[in-house]
Design a protein around this nucleic acid. Sequence first.
DNA 1: CGAATGTGTGACAACGTTGTCAGGCATTTC
DNA 2: GAAATGCCTGACAACGTTGTCACACATTCG
Lengths: 352, 352
Amino acid sequence: MTTLSSPPAATAESLRARPTMRDVAALAGVSLKTVSRVVNREDGVSEDLAAKVERAAAQLDYRPNLTASNLRRSDRKTATWGLLLEDVANPFSSAVHRGVEEVARELGVAVFAASMDEDPERERELVATFSSRRVDALIIAPTATEHAYLANEVRNGIAVVFVDRPPFGIDADCVVTDNRAGAAAGTSHLVECGHRRIAFVGDFASISTANERYQGYVDSMAAHGVQVHAELVLRDVHDATQAVEAVRSLLALPEPPTAIFAAQNLITMGAVEALRDAGAQHRVALVGFDDFAMANLLDPAVTVVAQDPRAIGRLAATLVNERLSSSSAPVSVHVVPSVLIPRGSGEIAPRN
Amino acid sequence: MTTLSSPPAATAESLRARPTMRDVAALAGVSLKTVSRVVNREDGVSEDLAAKVERAAAQLDYRPNLTASNLRRSDRKTATWGLLLEDVANPFSSAVHRGVEEVARELGVAVFAASMDEDPERERELVATFSSRRVDALIIAPTATEHAYLANEVRNGIAVVFVDRPPFGIDADCVVTDNRAGAAAGTSHLVECGHRRIAFVGDFASISTANERYQGYVDSMAAHGVQVHAELVLRDVHDATQAVEAVRSLLALPEPPTAIFAAQNLITMGAVEALRDAGAQHRVALVGFDDFAMANLLDPAVTVVAQDPRAIGRLAATLVNERLSSSSAPVSVHVVPSVLIPRGSGEIAPRN
DNA sequence: CGAATGTGTGACAACGTTGTCAGGCATTTC
DNA sequence: GAAATGCCTGACAACGTTGTCACACATTCG
């Protein structure tokens, strides 16, 4: 790594104290309160005084101090939300983030985003931190399995909305994908193509969505009267590397599956890799839960049950806003539908 | 979308005023200041008093009010940074975000992230907003082409670090990829495979990194004595859809290129799609700038010049921290190296 | 013409916290 | 035994802003 240097931009002595309303008032020759009125666009200030204040503010490059304002204001709203995600860099999380941001922007709300990396303790730490920073709301894609600890925050007036996974031990608004129905749809798609030996590869059983998807798989198999073979069900598979291993082991079975339902996008990617390594990508059918970039450009293109994380984010943000304006509305669970996108890998028929 | 409702979680009357230090002090039977000392872990408080305070704080579920603390404290640090990205959901941006977050987390800093969507006005708005919220630092992946407007913020003591693209009109720390050298390396790779008709497909000429990459392409062609054909250079291509069109038009030329250098990841993805649609993916070589998910699983796997956005984010955050602790250090430009990853698409030899 | 009304402005206190300083008490020193 | 020292603790003001209230002045009304 190369580093080029030049003289410092701002020496210590060029740092000045930040101008306050008091400074603007002094320059404009008016009282503090009048400046406050002008800055907040309250009416009842004569035009010429307002103009004088505007000029003074511009001259000093005055920036209102929102932290001081928040402290004093009676509505006690900071126009700040905390967003707790699994990982800001993960495509699902960052799409949720984007959706939240779009709504927040219109409302003049700033969003703190943070990654929890599946660590329940970190979730609690972040909630405490954001609470100390007096966020108005928390949007949480939960990692913890017990959320009673949030009761205090809710009682303190923080709006809490869950996304992706439902909360446990607390009654709060929640936005989730129809995991069970979606997984059932994906599985049924494989059954309808003629498959009977359909493997399920899913995430930790401790993750509620992973369970829902597993239930959907079981539902569908039962509904079609197809047997679930225990050796074809692999759970607790969390990342792409583990998924590669898992699928490899499935293919090595005496009676390998003719189709695979991958219950999470990293698992789907791992499955693609493993199938390809085995040269089985055109022989074994694959349906994944959750869409991912380039799925349509792979060979074969990958059939998925797609979620709409951006819509989830937008809806969650809207719920937060409603909760903040009328906290007495009933708590609700919103289910965002998933969509099966056939692209090729899920339409491979079994060979007999 | 389905919505299930149940009775409200918290009625208006169950909302209580948030406990303050005063409440804790009253319950513990000590003064306000003693509570402050215990909360901030200052020493000089006897053990039994400290224990009493801890108990009272726990009983009331007291959360220190960081906004009030920030206002009063003399160092005037909010432990808050603003991160301005092109789009929080874009893989490059979100990886930078992740890198910044990792460093910020260790420092106890909370990060506001926001998307600018290539809108310079939005950049200025966000800077003003974050300045009002008294962030200690701004990390900017700039959209604007003129940053003199930031001089006031710097003078006010906000640390400013640029990532991905350098600033104009202001002297500030900056972390960039070696775009020019990286693009030259990618182009040279194609020349060394025997290609002479090498197309360049790049982003808006107004984007500095796009220009750097174009310069790298030109550098390499000149260095090898290979002619740049004007009809093979397509700039102002910004997204995947436009890239599909662009590559389609290149392939339709009387003398089409035998290789393509795609100067941005969305362009690379578009190129993959267009080549595939034309059945040319194994005939026309492709090297892309910037890695993307699944590039290794495509057919052929895509050769790229990879950036390391997470490292860029980490480095930027580290620079911010250094700048905040010693603002007199010289301003520096840090160049993070890119790496050519040969995967197949860039190693296709030309047919004569 | 005096009273009632309305309009614009500013003085002051308060939000929840921390920096400063002074005072109480126990211990040490001469 | 009085003075000096150290350790804890708390009273008070201040950070930058906004809510409340009162006052000065102009206007309208009986």
